[in-house]
Nucleic acid binder design. Structure first.
Ligand SMILES: [Mn+2]
Ligand SMILES: [Mn+2]
Ligand SMILES: [Zn+2]
Ligand SMILES: [Zn+2]
Lengths: 127, 127
DNA sequence: CTTAATTTGCGAATCATTCGCAGAATCATT
DNA sequence: AATGATTCTGCGAATGATTCGCAAATTAAG
């Protein structure tokens, strides 16, 4: 295992993610690809999503139904505000965490190493 | 469906959760019960966990391996700081969110309806 | 063009969780 | 305490998402 091949199926999966800009499951991506007659196997969709998530180019989230969904994303640390109507995902920076981190340390003796945050609501366009 | 029966198996599952105070999967709870010769079926463990989560007496979280885990919890809105060494879960209040909410509204036109937060690190006892 | 390495697609296998249902337990009423 | 209606339990089978195994197809180099 030296390099990583650049292949058609992988680019097709990536293209869908870049285009949609919202959390999609493997099955949804597979469905969208079929609609545009791009036949990529579901296995390959799964494998590509794992790859993208591993490289930090996609961010994963388990939805309410237990399915893992992915959205195209850049590596910088940030969080997401997801619109419950249209699914639009907006990046949110996280300065707020600094105060929480110090509070955790002083009040609970807890050394914060990592955190996760997600926001849900209605985006400007959907109001 | 009128009332809810109070049964032995349910109390055994609840007792484990109260005792352990950390996120446990259905399988783990089932295993702990068997060790103490309390034979509750895995199905019943699942059903009881759903019940507790529904009543807000337990809080659920999908762990890294994709398993749903539960911890005993009270209804008040708060978040959790999970120790990566011992699994201890500490409650964390969330004032910090207010500033994030207003930032979302003014900067992104996003109306915040709900949010999730989780913290990971090392608890005081484990340092 | 050849060849070695990687990727794909397919179906089978996994694994957590859910269902269906018959028998057991619980609760309210006599 | 016995009855009957309602709710639970345990079991094994079904489900559904994800992963695996492997032969055939693609890709990157020389
Ligand atoms: Mn992002
Ligand atoms: Mn709690
Ligand atoms: Zn929207
Ligand atoms: Zn600890």
């Amino acid at each position: 295992m030296r390099t990583q091949y650049s292949t058609r199926p992988r680019e097709q999966v990536s293209a869908i993610l870049k285009r949609e800009q919202r959390y999609l499951s493997a099955a949804e991506i597979h469905g969208l690809l079929r609609k545009s007659r791009q036949n990529v196997s579901l296995s390959t969709v799964y494998r590509t999503l794992d790859l993208l998530a591993g490289k930090g180019e996609a961010s994963a989230r388990v939805d309410a139904g237990g399915e893992t969904t992915y959205v195209v994303c850049d590596q910088t640390h940030h969080h997401h505000a997801v619109c419950r109507k249209c699914g639009k995902v907006q990046d949110v920076s996280c300065e707020a965490i600094e105060s929480v981190a110090s509070a955790l340390r002083t009040h609970h003796g807890f050394k914060l190493a990592d955190h996760e945050m997600q926001f849900f609501g209605t985006c400007g366009a959907c109001k």
